[in-house]
Amino acid sequence: MIKLQNITKVYRTKTIETTALNNINLHVPKGEFLSIMGPSGCGKSTLLNIIGLLDEPSGGDILVDGFAIKKYASRATAKFRNEKLGFIFQSFHLIPDLNVIDNVELPLLYRNISGKERRALAAEALESVGLANRKSHFPSQLSGGQKQRVAIARAIVGKPNIILADEPTGNLDSVMGDEVMDILTRLNKDNETTIVMVTHDERMANKTHRLIRLYDGSQVA
């Protein structure tokens, strides 16, 4: 499903060169729930962004669900992200000017489907995260856990094959964190959705199928 070969990421400024990822090789089969752990600044989020085609590696090859990326800014890459990938961010990244259902609908806007169908799919996604009664609320009116559930609904509304979650429980207390984790586990189990999750929380990582650890940009376990 996801194949990374010799992926490196180097940030360069005029005076300094920082290696964020160093020769990462990774294979994530379909239906796997993988977690990535490591100390802050070890390159976890960078790796996730590269898998999600949000960031460009400095070297190496990447193959995601059979798609070999050639140009990051192309329409084909945008279409691929839209149809195959779903993202969950630590800080939710909900659009404050849109209400809950409009936020959830967002990925469907870039598909050729009717407004009515979009509404139905968004309502279904919200239902699956237990927020059917919050459709008309705005993000500012929700708790952190509710926001993250909206973000999950947005990530799954387009029925992607892969979900990439960057510390989805990082901003939540343990109860809400568990709720979010339960939803992700259920998604993986019921729909065979491949999930790659970055986390700092060993307890959450232990709920996934496999754990890899990064240290200073290199995979150490």
């Binding site: 279409k79 992200r81 839209n82 149809e83 993202f87 659009i95 967002l106 990925p107 598909r111 387009g158």
Partner: peptide, 14 residues
């Protein structure tokens, strides 16, 4: 917001 939209499939024209 532009980042989020692009992450979820918006291209430059959108």
């Amino acid at each position: 917001e532009i980042g989020v939209r692009k992450a979820f499939g918006a291209h430059q024209g959108n």
